[in-house]
């Protein structure tokens, strides 16, 4: 998952980026002013925008309005130091999905960020299930038919992204866009290698496994559609 962080306070941005990278393992891009944030948001490769309100050049509320007027559905989490219900109502009416008042709790920020991404992808529960797979996005653990599967962070992120979109074909480019920030060297063969490892690990979990990830040649990957996938929570 890739997050756009628009925050002008350098130290806060550093901490937020570090927390979002270290905790849920998101790829984080940082924009230091509203205009840069707007330019980045036009790439449409983000699963969440974390937006400060008081920004140089273009304030957060205007950025939000521009985003929504373009029809961009990306979830937006507002960071605000302003008090008062009026500004919050104004924010939510302008298309914000959630807000956090400064000084906020980092754990709460991460939880809200995860919830917003999940909702943005159409899932209600933090544990996603499909094809006998169970992905717990809180603990970042994967089980196949109850058997734990150990994955590297990148492999986990690929599986998490795919299981959020069970029937869709996800291109390598999309995976690259959503899993890496732009400081990363983009090479599609990196994705191929990770998907290959992911497949092996998922198949090693069972004695007689069915393939889980299909390769659509020249188009990308998707979860195998034979079994009816379900994103319903399994409690």
């Amino acid at each position: 998952m890739r997050v756009l962080l628009v925050e002008d306070e350098v130290r806060l941005a550093e901490n937020l980026a570090a927390a979002l990278r270290d905790g849920p393992g998101f790829a984080v891009d940082w924009a230091a002013d509203g205009q840069a944030g707007d330019d980045s948001a036009r790439l449409r490769c983000y699963d969440l925008v974390v937006l400060d309100l008081m920004l140089p050049r273009l304030d957060g509320l205007s950025l939000l309005r521009r985003l929504r007027s373009r029809g961009d559905p990306t979830p937006v989490l507002i960071l605000t130091a302003k008090e008062g219900a009026r500004s919050i109502i104004e924010l939510l009416n302008a298309g914000a999905d959630d807000y956090l008042a400064k000084p906020f709790d980092l754990g709460e920020l991460i939880a809200r960020a995860k919830a917003l991404i999940r909702r943005g992808m159409g899932a209600a529960h933090p544990t996603l299930t499909a094809l006998g797979l169970e992905v717990n996005t809180l603990e970042q653990t994967v089980r196949r038919e109850g058997v734990p599967v150990e994955l590297s962070p990148t492999e986990y992120r690929i599986l998490e992204y795919l299981i959020h979109r069970p029937r869709a074909v996800v291109s390598k480019r999309e995976l690259l866009e959503h899993l890496y920030d732009y400081n990363w060297e983009h090479h599609s063969n990196v994705i191929e290698a990770h998907v290959s490892n992911l497949r092996k690990k998922l198949e090693a979990a069972l004695p007689n496994p069915e393939p889980v990830i299909e390769t659509m040649r020249g188009r990308g990957y998707r979860l195998a559609p034979e079994m009816s996938p379900s994103t319903k929570p399994r409690l």
């Binding site: 306070e9 130290r11 937020l16 008042a101 400064k102 000084p103 906020f104 980092l106």
Partner: peptide, 9 residues
């Protein structure tokens, strides 16, 4: 608040 948020985070 921002300065406090920095320290807290």
């Amino acid at each position: 608040k921002t300065a406090v948020a920095v320290i807290k985070s």
